[in-house]
């Protein structure tokens, strides 16, 4: 009771020996392993957050290569097939004058994944090298990756819908290409990388400057 009264608001919780549950947001002392309310495993920071993030990031970069070079969609017209990669699909759409669609696909399938990977790499590197500047902006960038990451799936759904719809016997058929799988896995791995990343680590870099608070708690 008394120690809780002495808690300082506006200061990092970890420094005061407290952590919050990732699920139910209830707070608990660092010594607790499980949340007393929802039973989730408690940890002040995601364990091995950086390593996990790096691992997922590297996987997603590796997946990004086949996802962009292999055809994402196979179109068979009168028995003869042709494959479209993501980029050639965007170019075709642009040439056909479907500018909005071309832009949407370009942003969702090329710009977003690349931006997301670049942002996460930047964040990871800044933690790795304890670069503590402009943390608020970095947090905003992180939130952006969480927000836009899922939208990369648009192209996958387009391929799925087209493949399901365009089945016209010998006339015209569309099948998903191998890149559809790698692209989908790439989106999933970048999402996992974003989830594995703990933004608190960004703020921890700033906390180093105030070690006396931590001592006061202890």
């Amino acid at each position: 009771m008394t120690d809780e009264d002495s808690l300082n608001t506006g200061v990092s919780a970890l420094d005061q020996g407290y952590q919050s549950c990732h699920v139910c947001m209830s707070i608990a002392p660092i010594a607790h392993n499980h949340c007393e309310l929802c039973g989730s495993v408690l940890h002040a920071r995601i364990p091995n957050s950086l390593q996990k993030t790096w691992a997922w990031l590297i996987t997603s970069i590796l997946l990004l290569i086949p996802a962009n070079t292999l055809p994402i969609m196979q179109t068979y017209v009168l028995g003869s097939g042709s494959g479209d990669t993501i980029f050639s699909g965007v170019i075709t759409l642009w040439q056909h004058g479907s500018y909005p669609i071309a832009v949407i696909i370009f942003v969702a399938s090329i710009l977003v994944p690349v931006t997301k990977i670049v942002i996460l790499i930047t964040l990871c590197l800044s933690i790795q090298f304890s670069h503590a500047s402009s943390t608020t902006e970095k947090t905003t960038l992180y939130r952006l990756t969480e927000l836009i990451g899922r939208w990369s799936m648009i192209d996958i759904f387009v391929v799925i819908i087209l493949a399901a719809l365009i089945q016209f016997g010998g006339l015209m058929n569309i099948y998903p290409g191998f890149a559809a799988i790698t692209f989908a896995l790439m989106v999933i791995t970048t999402m996992l990388a974003a989830i594995s990343f703990d933004p608190k680590l960004l703020w921890d870099l700033n906390q180093i400057a105030v070690p006396e608070v931590k001592e006061a708690v202890e």
Partner: peptide, 18 residues
């Protein structure tokens, strides 16, 4: 326990009054 008196920002780990 006074868990409900406080809240921790789950992005920046700031301890706040509930």
């Amino acid at each position: 326990m006074a868990s409900t008196e406080y809240i921790i920002c789950h992005e920046c780990d700031l301890l706040l009054a509930a």
